[in-house]
Structures are given as structure tokens and as C-alpha cells.
Simulated assay, not measured.
Amino acid sequence: MTTPRDLFLVTVYDAAARPVTQGDLSLALAGAELVDLLAAGAVTLDGDLVVPAPQGGTGDRLLDEAAAALRQEAPYESVEDWLWRRGRGLGAAYLDVLEADGTVVAQQRRRWLPLPTGRTEPSDSPERAAAHERWTSGEPVLAALAAAVGIQDEAAGDLVGAAPEATVTVVAAVNDAVTELAAVRQRREIEDAAFDNVWRGL
């Protein structure tokens, strides 16, 4: 299993009492992909710029797609730009892949998940068990990514010193992007409310 697959499973299923929005989850999944690509040697960071490195396939379809989507020549994009570009619709893409490989299946009992593809639940599989174990053990990177999308109040420990500097940079960028997205939502709500008030006053 990969970090984004584990992140999807634990944020949507283990922490379903605090559902994450599609936008927040997609940004975090893009960050999780970058964390795994860094670990695989498929990318490096030059400051906050994502620089592809010669590397074979990862063995995971979506991670390989992510690697192929990297800008291959300068000027390279920043981590933040990568999150916004790669993250668009990524939550739904992961659900599709997890359904296709049987990691999640059609749900027997009814529970609404914050994704447009319907009601599903994780299957009883080694992948599911591994994700759950990583989550309950408080593995720092997974915990920090989950904290970024509001699944828990604090990451399990400080990532600084517990993870490579490049990973810390990526997780910080995920936090910033999720915060920015929340601000955009708030502005839209305020604008919509003001518009409604104008119409009521006419």
C-alpha cells in the first residue's frame, strides 16, 4: 500500500465521524503522492520546487501517473502548485481505483461518505489491515496529513526530526493549501449571503 491509499482509507473510513471534504482530501492525497515519490527517489525538492529524478515505475498505477504528470524540464513547479494541479478530483480517482481492485466494496449497511460515487466500505483485506495498523500506531507522516485535513486535532508528534526535511516541506504545503481552500470557501459563503440579502431587500 502507498501513503495516499492509506490516507484515503483512514480519513474516509476510520475517521468517518469527522468527514473530510473532497477538496481537502484531494489536496492531501496529492501531498501524500509527493511524499511517496520522494521516498522512492522519483523526485527531489530544490527548495520548494519539485524536480523529477530518473527512476523506474513505483508499481502503483496512480503514483506512476503522478510521476508522469511532473514537469520534466525547468521551470519546475512549486509544491503548492503541484498540490492544486494534481489534486483536482484526486479523491474520486482513488475511490475508483480502490473499488476496482476490491479494497473497498459496495456497502451493505448505509453510511454516507463525502464522495460522489456512493456508499462503500473497506473490504477485509491485508491492505485495509495495514492502513489501519499504520493509523492506530500514530505513524507521524500519516498522522500529520490526517491532521492537515482536520481528522484529528494534532499530528502524532512533531514531524521535524521524525521525517526527512523534504517530507516536512510537503506536509507544510498541504496545511497551507487546505487553509487557503477554507478561506476561499468562507469568502464564497460571505459573498453568497450578501447576494441573498440584496435580493431580499428588493
Rank of each mutant, 00 (worst) to 15 (best):
L70V: 15
L62A: 08
E133A: 12
R111N: 01
P114R: 01
T120I: 02
Y76V: 05
G87N: 00
G91T: 00
R134Q: 15
L95V: 04
S78W: 00
R128N: 12
R134G: 11
P122I: 06
S125R: 02
R71M: 14
A68S: 14
S78Y: 04
D60C: 10
R71V: 15
V97G: 11
T120E: 05
G91C: 06
R109H: 02
G87A: 00
Q72W: 08
R88T: 07
A67Y: 09
T117Y: 11
P122C: 08
A93K: 14
A92P: 05
E77H: 14
T117S: 14
A66T: 10
Q72K: 09
R71L: 15
P126Y: 00
P140E: 13
L113W: 01
V79H: 02
E127Y: 05
A74F: 09
E133S: 03
P140K: 07
Y94E: 04
E127F: 02
Y94C: 00
E80Q: 14
S123C: 03
G118Q: 07
H132K: 13
T117F: 13
R119Q: 06
V105E: 08
P116I: 06
Y76A: 02
L115Y: 07
R128G: 07
P140T: 11
D81W: 03
V97C: 14
G138C: 07
S137H: 06
V104C: 05
A93V: 09
L70R: 15
A68D: 11
D64R: 05
H132F: 10
R111I: 01
L70T: 14
G138A: 12
W84I: 05
S137E: 10
A93W: 09
A66N: 04
L113V: 01
L113Q: 00
A129R: 10
E133N: 08
Q108N: 12
W135A: 08
R86W: 02
G89L: 01
D96F: 13
A93D: 08
G102E: 00
A130D: 15
L62W: 02
R119D: 02
A69Q: 03
A67W: 09
P75D: 03
R134I: 12
R85Q: 04
R119V: 02
Y76T: 04
Q108E: 15
W112F: 11
L98P: 03
G118N: 00
L62P: 00
A100L: 08
E73P: 06
S125L: 04
S125P: 00
S125H: 02
D81P: 08
E121C: 01
Q107S: 13
Q107I: 05
W112P: 03
A92Y: 10
S78T: 14
L83P: 13
